[in-house]
């Protein structure tokens, strides 16, 4: 029974907390820009507002646009339920990190199709760039997580968290190197600087925002929420797989402590992302592959040190 509670708690955390981390990142960026910025809870109000608006769907759009937001949101919900959030208890619910990466690709696939569906120029180019970035970041993502799998001798996510927790500080160098590779993939997959500008859909900077340009109302809310969930999922993977200290295996009062620890770690990583966004310029699209291949090569170095 405890396991069911724990599972429900973990599965609910990602969708519930995701808007907060988006808001937090925006707030930190605002402070860097010498603005006061909105409260970190503003995204919740935005979502509420969007859910209660009428929506416009293009005449050229097909059922792909109608159902894609549900498919994308659903796939991210299931990924959020399968990753270690507060606990590294053995939830190998449906598989390992490959299953997770390909489920995320499922969402990306439909997002790109939704971008193409209405036949607008913006959506099409957004989809093209999205598939470019996600195809090239997959190598770095798989290899950085594979480095952990080599160290932990399992590719199951909870197993990786337990295995890395047992790695001593003296052997931690390869894990840090793999994290650098992962972090680049994180920025690419969650469409943040220097890959994409999450704050605008201006032509020159657009990837994610361009694909969802045709959406409004509840479907836009689902897509925005889903992209927040993806951001939180990557942050949680970063802190819970690479630095899995403080994860509690059971269900009890100690879980509160582990929840606080995870929350703090995730906050730190979100702030780091915000700082990078504030201090870095966006790159030209043809410079991005260099960065993504760097992530791939760095992860190979980490694997080389581990095997």
């Amino acid at each position: 029974m405890d396991r069911i509670y724990l599972f429900a708690l973990q599965a609910a955390f990602v969708p519930i907390a995701a808007p907060f981390f988006i808001g937090l990142t925006r707030r930190v960026k605002a402070i860097f820009q010498d603005r006061k910025g909105a409260s970190p809870f503003q995204p919740y109000r935005d979502l509420w507002k969007l859910f209660h608006k009428d929506e416009v769907i293009s005449k050229d759009a097909s059922w792909v646009s109608r159902y894609a937001p549900y498919l994308i949101f659903g796939s991210l919900l299931s990924v959020g339920a399968a990753i270690p959030v507060f606990s590294d208890a053995g939830f190998s619910l449906f598989g390992d990190f490959l299953a997770m990466i390909y489920l995320l690709a499922f969402g990306t696939f439909f997002l790109a199709l939704a971008g193409l569906d209405a036949g607008g120029g913006f959506g099409g180019f957004g989809a093209s760039r999205e598939m470019l970035v996600s195809a090239l970041s997959e190598g770095g993502l798989i290899f950085s997580l594979f480095a952990l799998a080599v160290a932990a001798r399992t590719t199951n996510l909870a197993g990786i968290a337990r295995g890395i927790a047992g790695v001593s500080f003296t052997d931690f160098t390869p894990i840090i190197i793999a994290f650098v590779g992962f972090f680049i993939a994180l920025l690419a997959e969650t469409m943040r600087y220097p890959f994409d500008n999450p704050a605008t859909h201006l032509e020159l900077t657009m990837i994610h925002e361009a694909m969802i340009l045709e959406f409004s109302g509840k479907r836009l809310a689902l897509l925005e929420w889903a992209s927040g969930m993806k951001y939180l999922i990557f942050i949680l993977l970063g802190v819970n797989l690479f630095f899995p200290w403080g994860l509690y295996g059971g269900f009890g009062p100690a879980l509160v402590v582990s929840a606080i620890v995870v929350f703090l770690k995730a906050t730190v990583l979100a702030v780091v992302v915000a700082i990078i966004e504030s201090t870095m310029a966006k790159m030209r699209i043809f410079r991005l592959p260099d960065l993504l291949f760097t992530s791939f090569v760095i992860s190979i170095i980490a694997i080389g040190l581990l095997v």
């Binding site: 209660h52 009428d54 929506e55 416009v56 293009s58 005449k59 050229d60 759009a61 809310a221």
Partner: peptide, 11 residues
Amino acid sequence: SRRQKIIRNIT
């Protein structure tokens, strides 16, 4: 969002 309308319009 139960009562919201869906309007079909051009891209």
